[in-house]
Simulated scan of single mutants.
Amino acid sequence: MTYENALKQVKNSQVFEDKTILKLANDKGWTIAHVQATWSWIINDKEILKLANKRGRTVAHVILYTTGYMFKYKKLLQILKIML
């Protein structure tokens, strides 16, 4: 599956949990996980939360920004330099 195909499905309310699909990215590094996070999707998988685009914005940053959700992994928040 390509990023474009997955993006179309996400726009049609499909939610992916498969890490391979969540890691698909466009040329700016914006992943399917980032897209889902902008629509209030929450995941606690450290690997996915650390995915960053080329400007350094992680999936964790997007989830925190869009939902206010506080992750159970406080150490991860420290790694990502998100203030509690």
Rank of each mutant, 00 (worst) to 15 (best):
V10G: 08
V10N: 12
N12P: 03
N12C: 04
S13V: 07
S13M: 11
Q14S: 12
Q14V: 14
Q14R: 15
Q14C: 13
V15Y: 12
V15G: 02
V15N: 14
F16H: 06
F16S: 08
F16P: 05
F16L: 14
E17F: 07
E17Y: 09
E17G: 00
D18P: 02
D18T: 03
D18K: 05
D18V: 05
K19Q: 13
T20I: 05
T20Y: 12
T20P: 00
I21F: 03
I21N: 01
I21H: 03
K23M: 13
K23V: 00
K23G: 06
L24G: 00
L24M: 07
A25F: 01
A25G: 04
A25R: 13
D27S: 14
D27F: 13
D27L: 12
D27E: 15
D27V: 08
K28C: 13
K28M: 12
K28I: 10
K28Q: 14
G29N: 10
G29L: 11
W30H: 10
W30S: 09
T31H: 10
I32A: 10
I32W: 06
H34R: 01
H34C: 12
H34F: 08
V35W: 12
Q36A: 06
Q36V: 00
Q36E: 07
T38G: 04
T38M: 12
T38V: 01
W39N: 12
S40Q: 13
W41C: 06
I42F: 07
I42L: 08
I42M: 11
I42K: 12
I43V: 15
I43H: 11
N44E: 15
D45E: 15
D45P: 06
D45S: 11
D45A: 09
K46M: 06
I48V: 14
I48E: 03
L49G: 09
K50A: 08
K50D: 07
K50N: 12
L51P: 05
L51G: 02
L51M: 09
A52Y: 06
A52M: 10
A52S: 13
N53S: 02
N53L: 01
N53A: 01
N53R: 01
N53H: 01
R55G: 03
G56V: 02
G56P: 02
T58G: 00
T58D: 06
T58L: 11
T58M: 08
V59I: 06
V59D: 05
V59M: 05
A60F: 04
A60W: 02
A60R: 01
H61A: 11
H61Q: 07
V62G: 01
V62F: 04
V62H: 02
